[in-house]
Amino acid sequence: MSVPTVFFDQLYADNPDPWAFKARWYEERKRALTLASLPRQHYGATYEPGCANGELSAGLARRTDWLLCSDAADRAVELAQKRLSHCSNVEVRHSRLPADWPVRSGFDLIVLSELGYYLDTDDLLTLIEQAMNSLLPGGQLLACHWRPAIEGCPLTGDRVHALLHATLGLPKLAQHREDDFVLEVWGRSPDSVASLEGLK
Score class of each variant (00 low, 15 high):
residue 182 V to I: 10
residue 63 R to W: 13
residue 99 A to T: 12
residue 125 L to D: 09
residue 72 A to K: 14
residue 37 S to F: 06
residue 95 S to D: 02
residue 50 G to Q: 02
residue 131 A to T: 04
residue 145 H to F: 12
residue 168 L to Y: 10
residue 79 L to P: 11
residue 198 G to Q: 01
residue 112 L to Y: 04
residue 93 R to N: 08
residue 102 P to Y: 02
residue 185 V to Q: 03
residue 8 F to D: 03
residue 200 K to F: 15
residue 93 R to K: 05
residue 15 N to C: 09
residue 121 T to A: 13
residue 172 K to F: 00
residue 18 P to Y: 01
residue 75 R to M: 09
residue 200 K to S: 15
residue 186 W to D: 00
residue 177 R to K: 00
residue 100 D to W: 10
residue 134 S to H: 09
residue 50 G to S: 04
residue 34 T to V: 05
residue 64 T to E: 14
residue 53 N to T: 00
residue 40 R to F: 05
residue 91 E to W: 00
residue 135 L to A: 09
residue 75 R to S: 08
residue 10 Q to F: 02
residue 95 S to L: 03
residue 187 G to E: 05
residue 176 H to M: 08
residue 17 D to Y: 10
residue 195 S to I: 06
residue 114 E to I: 01
residue 155 L to R: 09
residue 199 L to P: 10
residue 139 G to S: 03
residue 23 A to P: 10
residue 23 A to V: 11
residue 137 P to Q: 11
residue 18 P to H: 02
residue 91 E to S: 09
residue 174 A to T: 14
residue 145 H to D: 07
residue 22 K to S: 10
residue 166 A to E: 10
residue 104 R to E: 04
residue 78 E to C: 11
residue 150 I to V: 13
residue 88 S to V: 12
residue 36 A to W: 12
residue 129 E to W: 03
residue 158 D to V: 13
residue 132 M to R: 15
residue 186 W to E: 01
residue 89 N to Q: 07
residue 161 H to V: 12
residue 113 S to M: 04
residue 155 L to S: 09
residue 87 C to N: 15
residue 110 I to W: 14
residue 115 L to W: 01
residue 9 D to W: 12
residue 182 V to Q: 00
residue 52 A to H: 06
residue 121 T to E: 15
residue 171 P to N: 11
residue 51 C to K: 03
residue 172 K to C: 09
residue 179 D to C: 13
residue 112 L to R: 14
residue 83 R to C: 07
residue 193 V to Y: 07
residue 186 W to S: 00
residue 44 G to S: 08
residue 180 D to C: 02
residue 150 I to L: 14
residue 82 K to L: 15
residue 183 L to R: 06
residue 106 G to A: 02
residue 85 S to A: 13
residue 50 G to H: 02
residue 171 P to T: 13
residue 6 V to F: 10
residue 191 D to S: 12
residue 93 R to P: 02
residue 174 A to L: 01
residue 199 L to N: 11
residue 19 W to Y: 10
residue 102 P to E: 01
residue 121 T to Y: 11
residue 16 P to E: 09
residue 69 C to D: 14
residue 106 G to W: 00
residue 109 L to G: 04
residue 130 Q to G: 09
residue 131 A to F: 01
residue 176 H to W: 09
residue 156 T to N: 03
residue 94 H to F: 01
residue 120 D to H: 04
residue 85 S to D: 07
residue 30 K to G: 04
residue 78 E to R: 15
